[in-house]
Computed example of a mutant assay.
Amino acid sequence: MSFHPIRHFITITRHRHEVVRLCFKAGIGFQGFFHDLSKYSPTEFLPGARYYSGKESPNNGERRDTGMSLAWMHHKGRNRHHFEFWYDYEMATKKIVPMDMPDRYIKEMFCDRVAASKTYNKESYTQESPLLYLTKSTAKEKMTENTYKKLLFLLQMLAEKGEKETLRFIRRCKDLPLAEIDGKQLP
């Protein structure tokens, strides 16, 4: 295992700059300025440099090595654009369950997922990459139905209509629509 602080810094900064660019085009530019700043903290940066591969999140390397990712736990607890931030106790059952994400953070999550797909897929990135990543994951089981449907709607729109049109839609949209899981006609 190597230590790659410069490569890691370049990767997270490239990703962050792409998220900021997308956030501005989506009408949430101010929010974009604060995106992922915790990645530069020692708690996240040092494991990121230690487990850097350039092909996947360093958090996966930390998980393989230690059984968990302290960097990820730190990150998700400070960044509201991650659905994992939005968990709380349900009073009736005392179980920890997902909560609906506010639309402003779903918009940032969209920008984050597009930027991450571009960062890790590089030249093999397509407009469908973020949608495929979502639908192949177990995220649906871990988000509220409303949060999942809203993110799905945006990623389907990206796949079908492209980045420019989807960002224009997000910028103009106060309340995000819900996708029909079996396919909804996009606006």
Results as ranks from 00 to 15, higher is better:
T43H: 07
T43S: 08
T43A: 04
E44I: 01
E44L: 04
F45R: 12
L46H: 03
P47T: 02
P47G: 06
G48T: 02
A49R: 00
R50K: 15
R50N: 01
Y52N: 02
S53D: 12
S53M: 08
K55N: 13
E56F: 07
S57P: 04
P58N: 09
P58S: 07
N60T: 09
N60P: 05
N60L: 14
N60K: 13
E62F: 07
R63M: 12
R63E: 12
R63N: 09
R64H: 12
R64D: 08
R64F: 08
D65V: 02
D65A: 15
D65H: 14
T66R: 14
G67A: 09
M68W: 15
S69V: 02
S69A: 08
S69R: 00
L70F: 12
A71W: 00
A71K: 00
H74C: 03
H75L: 03
H75R: 09
G77S: 11
R78Y: 13
N79C: 08
R80H: 14
R80Q: 15
R80S: 11
H81V: 02
H81W: 14
H82T: 06
F83V: 04
E84T: 06
E84R: 06
E84I: 02
F85D: 09
W86D: 07
Y87L: 07
Y87A: 02
